[in-house]
Design a protein around this nucleic acid. Structure first.
Lengths: 148, 148
DNA sequence: AACATTGCTTTCAAAATGATAGTAACACTT
DNA sequence: AAGTGTTACTATCATTTTGAAAGCAATGTT
């Protein structure tokens, strides 16, 4: 994609999107966070063609966001559960949802709540160092030297 | 996609992904945040086919993330600049980058810095209400009644 | 007048997607 | 024991999307 030089794309956004840059993968991850684990649950929830679902689940598994777990030996049946990497993807999904909520929020909308307090979540991204919201201070994308 | 009922998909994540759920759109937005505005800048930066770029820029413009601005009358030339909605998409990109940084961080990596302090940004998503990091407390996705 | 620049469009082959049907391995029911 | 149901797929094929390459229109530059 961006291979003007010999090393892999140095942008962490591009690296992530290289295999997660499609709607289905992200919706599968969303459903996984909601608690779905099985092929047919994903298929019914998403209305996705089984061919595509097979491929997406395989990619997500290969890339370490999901992992297969045998939940029945006879008949052999596997389910897909989130790994640590998959669980750590939640902030991305939540921020996508926050944007959608703000800019595509007409009509009835799913809301994300804190289970304990029952209150709606109000997600914001901050810089942990300065404590300020992302977007309030100018940022810079810095390319390192690349001698791979 | 998820039209088991008559109303539009109530999930704000799905709504966002409905038109932003592809790699190119997100990379264009990334480049727009870096400061690119012109067709050829995007094309060269991304190595994208002009056909696709035309379509993606049109969608991003229609959806209100970019807007066309005439920067030369003769010859008539337009550039694409981020709108408020487009600027507010930065947290999503930054969180995607943070995930990529953590889980796909081998080799040289672009880092995001605070321009003023020069320090690397450490992006985290928090719930503004409770102040806690997203992912540390159990969440729930709540479907509202839908009588559209 | 010839060439360069910018922002596209046209064309067409290749790849991805989606819909539908079918299959494998079992369990369960009668 | 035969038939039916469940789950997780695979096979097939038409449609859609993508990508590569070339072309073009409206200028500015030399």
């Amino acid at each position: 994609m961006n291979d003007k030089n010999s090393c892999a794309d140095p942008c962490p956004i591009a690296r992530c999107l290289a295999f997660l840059g499609d709607t289905w993968s992200l919706l599968i991850l969303r459903d996984a966070h909601i608690g779905l684990t099985r092929f047919d649950q994903f298929r019914k929830s998403l209305g996705i063609a089984p061919t595509i679902l097979t491929r997406r689940l395989a990619t997500l598994t290969e890339e370490g966001l999901l992992e297969k777990r045998l939940y029945s030996e006879r008949p052999p049946r596997e389910e897909y559960v989130l790994t640590a990497a998959g669980r750590d993807f939640l902030p991305v999904l939540v921020m996508i949802g926050a944007w959608g909520h703000q800019y595509r929020g007409e009509g009835p909308l799913v809301r994300i709540q804190d289970v304990e307090t029952g209150a709606d979540i109000k997600p914001v991204a901050i810089d942990e160092i300065t404590g300020t919201k992302i977007g309030t201070r100018p940022l810079r994308f810095v390319l390192p030297d690349c001698d791979d």
